[in-house]
Design a protein around this nucleic acid. Sequence first.
DNA 1: CGTCGCTCCTGGATGC
DNA 2: TGCATCCAGGAGCGAC
Length: 275
Amino acid sequence: MPELPEVETIRRSLEQNIKGKTFMGAEVFLEKMVKGVSPLELNSELKGREITRIDRRGKYLIIHLTGGIAMVIHLRMTGQLLYCSPEQEKVRHTHIIFKLSDMCQLRFADQRQFGKISLVSVRELDNFPGLKGLGVEPLGETFSREFFKKELRNRRTKIKPLLLDQTFIAGIGNIYADEALFRAMINPERIASSLTPREASRLYLAIRTVLQEGIENKGTSIKDYVDGDGNKGSNQGNLRVYGREGEPCVKCGKEIKRKSIGGRSSHFCPKCQKL
DNA sequence: CGTCGCTCCTGGATGC
DNA sequence: TGCATCCAGGAGCGAC
């Protein structure tokens, strides 16, 4: 599922492929994938606008267009954005095809249909639901060790659900949350405020490390994830706990456990990550 | 306001 | 072998 490293990898591939090109239109096959505008409006609004910049905020992609509007995209779990030549066969669950000035296409496919695409005026971007209230960028400068420690002190919730809270930190999903907690040797059920300064410090570094490594490895491809060119990432080979239930811990050899915490499956080593 | 549980959806895994 | 059921998961929503 696309989390920060996957969305960043897609952003980079889109920057290579579609930046500077002009939209010629959009063909929508599944209406509910577009939010806020009708398929007809999406088509007419996009037509003739050039792609000037592609940003990422948390797990959102923001494609800036001439004329002060932007296309905001969230891929949720199974969404894909693929840059294709027109003769390339459509993958299953292709819901929108954007036509580009170079005769190529940007295609939006999503098996589970949870993804969303919207058109927003740049003035309204900060008020856009989803973007508004998004927390700090974990790889940005404002996410400091001191900020993280201070925030944890006031939170009575379990650390794992807190890491997934996008209004706290933007971009961490289930895979990187589990990986960061393992690297920091912290049990996912620990109450956030109970973390010692040392533990908070370790977790802070672990978050930045796993996300950074995820980007370097061009994302984690477990099931569906591919970048804008259809290429898989390689970070799945870097995972220590996620999806490794029943396998031996890479540190101590004890069996990796899986448990539902806050409604999300969590993978951890019961010996290295004691409660 | 913080926290929780439910909902959307498909297909792969599991159960009988 | 075939059918039914369960489960995964991000974020928005209503409930408390």
